[in-house]
Design a protein around this nucleic acid. Structure first.
Length: 283
DNA sequence: CACTGAGCCTGCTAGC
DNA sequence: TGCTAGCAGGCTCAGT
């Protein structure tokens, strides 16, 4: 499942190939992949424009066009954005039925959006600093502005369970189930802790864990458990560095050896060590 | 404000 | 071997 490091890797691999290319055509093969606006309006807005930047905000890939409007792509669970240097002839025939959208680009290239489970979304937003695509996106964990104090200020007012709060994209952007479980394990915090009850030292440990984890995962070009590929089709390698995610409940904790537990918290499977990870509930 | 559950989807797997 | 039921997961929306 692509989270921040995977999306950042997609962005980095696509950027040199997409920047400066113009969009010659757009083909939509699954209508719900296009979130907004309508197909007619989307096509009118993007065809003929040039891509001037490929950025990222949280888990969104953000392509800025020459009129400052933006195309955003959310990969959700199984989405893949692949750049192909030879239009259609390089496509994988076996996956043709998972191909949801195709941007025909200049120089005979194309950008394909594959998405097995059809959860991924493509949107277009006109340039508008007052109501852009990122109105409800929270702190950006790899930005300079993401400090321990900034994290403390968003946690301190929230009387919510820590894990669902960290998964909330309007609070911190880019974390998903894998990196939240890993960050909580590394910072020795129990997923059922109450966010507002954390001490400043505990927030600092959590901040340090998030930043270190995401930075290293980006360096490893992301985590490939099953579907994830970069913009050029390569797998990541951070799955080898995961400490608890993907481990079956009942396995020994890699830190203390006691039994790892699994709970469903906020409708998400969660793996943790009740011995290492302290449950902070006193507010 | 915080939380829960349904819905969106398909492929994999456990169990028969 | 072949079948089915259940699970996985990010996010949105409706309801409590």
């Amino acid at each position: 499942m692509p989270e921040l490091p995977e999306v950042e890797t997609v962005r980095r691999t696509l950027a040199p190939h997409l920047t400066g290319k113009s969009i010659d055509s757009f083909e939509l093969r699954w209508h719900r992949t296009l979130q907004r606006p309508s197909l007619n309006d989307f096509t009118f807005a993007v065809v003929g424009r040039t891509i001037v930047d490929v950025g990222r905000r949280g888990k969104l890939v953000v392509m800025t066009l020459d009129d400052r409007s933006t195309i955003t792509v959310h990969l959700r669970m199984t989405g893949e954005l692949l750049f192909l240097s030879k239009r259609s002839s390089e496509r994988d025939d076996a996956r043709e039925n998972h191909l949801r959208a195709i941007f025909g680009l200049s120089h005979g290239t194309e950008l394909c959006f594959y998405d097995t489970r059809k959860f991924g979304k493509i949107s277009w937003y006109p340039f508008d600093p007052a109501s852009g695509f990122d109105q409800h996106i929270g702190l950006e964990p790899l930005a300079d502005t993401f400090t321990a104090d900034a994290l403390a200020s968003v946690l301190s007012t929230r009387h919510r369970l820590l894990k669902p709060l960290l998964l909330d994209q309007s609070v911190v952007a880019g974390l998903g189930n894998i990196y939240v479980d890993e960050a909580l394990f590394r910072s020795r915090l129990h997923p059922l802790s109450i966010a507002s009850a954390l001490s400043h030292e505990q927030v600092e440990a959590l901040h340090e864990a998030i930043v270190t984890l995401l930075s290293r995962a980006v360096e490893s070009r992301g985590t490939t458990l099953r579907d994830y590929r970069s913009g050029l089709g390569d797998v990541g390698s951070y799955q080898h560095a995961l400490r608890v995610y993907g481990t079956p409940a009942g396995s020994p904790c890699p830190e203390c050896g006691s039994t790892l537990e699994r709970l469903v918290i906020g409708q998400r499977g969660s793996i943790f060590c009740a011995n290492c990870q302290v449950r902070v509930t006193r507010d």
